[in-house]
Design a protein around this nucleic acid. Structure first.
Lengths: 223, 223
DNA sequence: TAATATTGGTTCAACATTGGATCAGATAAA
DNA sequence: TTTATCTGATCCAATGTTGAACCAATATTA
């Protein structure tokens, strides 16, 4: 049997909390009960709950019990966990909002070095032989466009989106929607974007990026 | 030179990692298991994993296991901490990117209930007597516009931005730039946005929001 | 108020799992 | 042959889980 039971229990607990369990009085069951329920030693439950406590997800009081702090939606960790559940449709909507603007920024602001980095990612993606390799360099292409914007916050937002898209359900989706033909289409569209960037054409870059993302959306969501 | 089996195994492992394997918990199988799976001695696997470790692809902990760094959940928290250092200028740039679009979305998609909630926040802000109170309802106004978009990810991004702007250095800044006159101007601009929302005028809402954010930027950054 | 029960906090010893390190011998390429 | 690599094995060190006992704070009940 795998180790790190406490980790698994912690994530299970988080799921159950964010799904609204124990919300009436905000009180979790006693550790001893949870231990029985999960079929593990109380020490293990304690460790798991300890993780939640470090998160700030939960507070413990001797003699009283363990209580959710989750009624506080302003905590950053709760935002992140909510973001992790983002649907592909929502994600594509935001990508179509942010990335064309980022491309336009990039066309205006990017240094030659940065543009070359984008081109390099593009070419590596075109040369990629298998799907995971392509996937990686495709993501890198988009990320390097964001890097050109010189706006660290925007770059981190893109990092966040990429992290979410790297989680397993997403990956299955991308794998299903992948084909050599589509890969070729993506490469052409990336090329078009790249051309606009090198020609310092913000409007063109914006439109090319939008067109590309519409293609991606069609392929991913089957619309 | 003998052939480098370890090298081959390393590239196979990398492929499997980038193809999304072991992504759920970011944990690789024990070296002993991998050795069996590849039909190779554990020492060889160790060498292969050692390459990945040098790459930074992977981190190893005695007694715990080997973990991917790419999907390390701590990387998300590190993104958030980096975001916390966002400069006001960067923040305003992104607000001017996101919020007009959100306003346009809202004009198209919002339900009557949601629009009333926006109006309520606006009116409470107008009636606010002191700066922190106004500040809170001002933020709430913007947040409710985002809530109209029906895009949870976008809403959470705005939550993040709000959390960052609520930190102390920001607060000082806002306090310095606050004046009764400016508050009045903000209220007028909010009213203009609100009118566009109720008239279901996406283009108008977008422009009104952009104009408002330009005012805020001028006041905040002294430009 | 006083006694009892409940609940989180702490510690401990035993065992299992896992990466870290080393070594002698076999294998394959230069 | 020489050299780097792989094999198979053994032991070590760090970590996690278990099961248990006891403590301290709080709540409930007599």
């Amino acid at each position: 049997m795998p180790k790190l039971v406490a980790n698994d229990i912690a994530t299970m607990l988080k799921k159950r909390i964010s799904s609204g369990e124990w919300l009436e009085d905000g009180r979790m069951p006693p550790e001893r009960d949870l231990a029985v329920e999960f079929g593990v030693a109380r020490n293990t439950v304690r460790r798991a709950v300890g993780f939640l406590e470090n998160d700030g997800t939960v507070v413990r009081h001797v003699g009283r019990g363990t209580f959710l702090t989750a009624t506080n939606p302003t905590s950053i960790t709760s935002m992140v966990t909510r973001m992790e559940g983002t649907s592909p449709a929502d994600m594509m909507e935001i990508r179509q909002l942010l990335e064309p603007a980022a491309a336009a920024f990039a066309a205006t602001n990017a240094s030659a070095t940065e543009l070359n980095a984008v081109r390099e990612a593009h070419q590596t993606a075109c040369d990629a032989k298998d799907m995971p390799d392509f996937e990686h360099w495709d993501a890198e292409f988009h990320h390097r466009v964001f890097a050109c914007c010189r706006n660290d916050f925007l770059k981190e937002i893109h990092n966040l989106m990429r992290a979410i898209r790297n989680q397993s359900p997403w990956f299955e989706m991308k794998k299903r929607s992948f084909s050599e033909e589509r890969r070729q289409a993506y490469c052409d569209e990336h090329q078009a974007i790249l051309d606009c960037l090198f020609h310092r054409d913000p409007e063109g870059a914006k439109n090319a990026m939008l067109a590309h993302l519409r293609t991606v959306e069609r392929n991913l969501l089957g619309r």
